[in-house]
Amino acid sequence: MSPLTPSQSLSNGLNGRTNLLSASSIELARPVGRRGRIALRPPRDALLRVASPLALLLIWQLAGSTGVLPERLLAAPSTIAATAYDLFRDGVLTEALGVSLRRAAFGFTLGALVGIGFALVAGLSRLGEYAVDPPMQMLRALPLFGLIPLFILWFGIGETPKIALVAFGVAFPLYLNTYAGIRGVDAKLAELGQVLRLSRPALIRHIVLPGALPQTLVGLRQSLGVAWLALIVAEQINADAGLGFMINDAREFLRTDVVVVGLVTYALLGLLTDAIVRLLERRALAWRRNFLS
């Protein structure tokens, strides 16, 4: 009817947009200022963050369903989910998981005992340092996976070389970090121990070991990362059970769905152990956390 209406609605629209913009910029600025950077993201932000993975999943599913992505290259998410359920129901996945977990647990325990044991010997005495540290520093230069041929020659193709590879990978991060942690304990606190007339065992128990703990936990996290990696590689060699075997077996039959289920299981295991270490850190380093928060 008149040219007023569109221009009015346009200006309304503009105003509305300006208000929206200023309002949202305040909203965005506030949580950072008030609660610091660690503050939980507002729900809308969390939604935005899952949007792109969901979109990728959708594209993947569409490409699979329409045949653009052939199943021998990569199965569709729906197929993978169904396969995961089947493998779980038939006990195949749980059995493979059990075998792999046992290897990881044995290898990790062995490697941790050796790594931390040697770190104590090297960290707590000069003689121990001279005896243990140079060979450890030399050995750590060896590429872990380059040792596989030797391990096969030494230990055959059974469980032993797999456990040994995990143990070897675990031992070094724990050794290096624990040793550095022990040596890095504040000299002023050691002096305090002297003034308080602490015996050597008491000094080690109350000052040295707790002082080395934060660094040891860093080593623990690193070593768990290496442990899973070593396990995955070790399970590719001549395994007749375990997650690696399940994956390799599936490759023979072009079952990309099973391969992906195996990979996701490995990933979940990694996330799980990382969460356990975080929990451990929160409990063991409570004296630090209070300070930080």
């Binding site: 121990g193 007339r197 008491a202 004296w287 630090r288």
Partner: peptide
Amino acid sequence: RLVPWKRVGANVTLG
């Protein structure tokens, strides 16, 4: 020179 991983009471009686 308080030992940071010991609570105040344990610091006082350390050793």
